[in-house]
Write a protein that binds this DNA or RNA. Structure first.
Length: 420
DNA sequence: TCTGGGGTCCTAGGACCC
DNA sequence: TCTGGGGTCCTAGGACCC
């Protein structure tokens, strides 16, 4: 059998975070609301038991919540991010192979723990609870897809104690028999409908389907799922988190926005926020999209949803440059006479940005350049963060050198660099 | 009045190249 | 009748996830 892995998932994560800091909320129905307090994005078990739906618009539920005694919290993403980091640090003590999958989930490679998988899972669960106050569920299985299913069992089954293992085919068959297609990781409503048309009505049907048929009729993704359900791993543990491929900042407005000045301000604000996020991840962009939307929930109002891509000559993480580019794009899609509900900015074509303060950015391409960047980083760490940077002029890549004794100059000669 | 904010991957089709 | 074939890149749109 493949080396087992575990999926650890924080229970009702945002609601649990609120409880850590307000213990009196324990045992009470708690919901957390989205930005602008628009709709429900997290529910405690007690709230779920009362029939509170995910995504329920708050303005339609206010009175009902009050009647039922549901405690309502506005979301606090900074807090949740911090709690997430604490949980992940504890998990790192329980495996050498950790993949942080989302703010509240992680996969743990468990090679070497085969002889005590259940005890390990229970110890992990107790430790996370004790050190962070967050309850988690642990699902252990030979593949990620089955670990997801195991995790679901651990959550649903009150006698499981938050831990479930799907290590044998018999256990896997029994578990899948109790699930709907849409309970599977990667199958949502539309895909389930299409599968139904092909005579696949349950997770067991899918597991036992012919992989080639599934690939031809559907996709390679679904074919992989067939194998995963059979216990043959197709999705590996990704311990190194790859760089983001896009970064977005967008918001719905609390009230309709009709003037270009207000819209432009929103675009500038979101651009600033996205640029901050991007710099935190040491990335830069040469391509952005700005978009605006009217209120899609008011079909009788005039609708205008538009987006505009803007290309920059070089990758940058400079807020001013990005704002002026975003506003240029905004100018192309702004139309008077509409009530806008939402706007946003997305950065694409992200490249590693080795920061040059106030300068240009570009990414090292070749392995040789990457090795050189490691040297550059060390020089900068020792002599100040922008002692050496690099830039690009047209298609020509050049290193930008600075020191106390020389004015900045560009070079393509590595030996120059090593003399700095 | 009021309905989230992020992300990823795959596919299909067209342009273009040799 | 047939009208090269293979490869890459780009874009738009769909589907899914947390």
């Amino acid at each position: 059998m493949a080396a087992p892995l575990a999926l650890v998932d924080c229970n009702n994560f945002y609601a649990s975070c609120e409880r850590v800091f307000q213990p009196r909320l324990r045992g009470q129905p708690v919901v957390v609301l989205s930005n602008n307090d628009g709709c429900v994005i997290a529910r405690s078990n007690e709230a779920k038991a009362l029939g509170v739906e995910m995504g329920a618009p708050w303005h339609l539920q206010k009175e009902r919540f009050a009647r039922l005694g549901v405690v309502v919290r506005s979301s606090n993403y900074t807090l949740y991010g911090d709690m997430s980091a604490r949980v992940m640090r504890v998990l790192a003590d329980f495996t050498p192979n950790l993949e942080i999958y989302s703010i509240d989930e992680a996969f743990l490679g468990l090679a070497g723990f085969e002889h005590r998988l259940e005890a390990h899972a229970r110890m992990l669960r107790a430790t996370v609870l004790q050190w962070t106050g967050i309850p988690v569920s642990v699902g252990t299985a030979p593949t990620k897809t089955l670990a997801k299913a195991a995790n679901r069992m651990a959550k649903k089954n009150p006698t499981a104690g938050g831990v479930a293992l799907l290590l044998t085919e018999a256990a896997q068959t029994a578990a899948l028999a109790g699930m709907e297609l849409t309970d599977l990781w990667g199958v949502a409503r539309r895909m389930a409908a299409r599968l139904g048309e092909a005579g696949i009505h349950s997770p067991l049907d899918l597991r036992d389907a012919e992989p080639r048929f599934v690939r031809e009729r559907f996709s390679v993704v679904l074919e992989r799922m067939v194998y995963e359900l059979r216990g043959l791993p197709c999705l590996s543990l990704e311990e190194i988190m790859p760089d983001r491929k896009s970064i977005m900042a967008s918001r719905s407005f609390g009230r309709p926005v009709t003037t270009p000045a207000e819209m432009a301000e929103a675009v500038a604000t979101y651009t600033t926020r996205a640029a901050e996020k991007m710099r935190r991840q040491r990335l830069a962009t040469s391509s952005l999209i700005v978009f605006v939307e009217t209120n899609r929930f008011k079909p009788n109002d005039p609708q205008h949803c538009a987006s505009q891509a803007v290309q920059l000559p070089v990758a940058t993480a400079n807020t001013g440059t990005l704002i002026s580019a975003a506003l240029r794009g905004f100018g192309a899609i702004w139309r008077p006479g509409f009530s806008f509900k939402k706007a946003g900015v997305m950065f694409l074509d992200l490249v590693p940005a080795h920061a040059v303060q106030g300068g240009l950015f570009d990414a090292p391409d070749t392995p040789a350049q990457q090795r050189l960047m490691a040297i550059v980083d060390r020089i900068n760490a020792r002599y100040g963060r922008d002692a050496v940077g690099f830039a690009r002029s047209g298609k020509r890549r050049a290193w930008k050198l600075r020191s106390e004794h020389h004015s900045p100059r560009y070079t393509t000669n590595w030996d120059d660099l090593l003399r700095v």
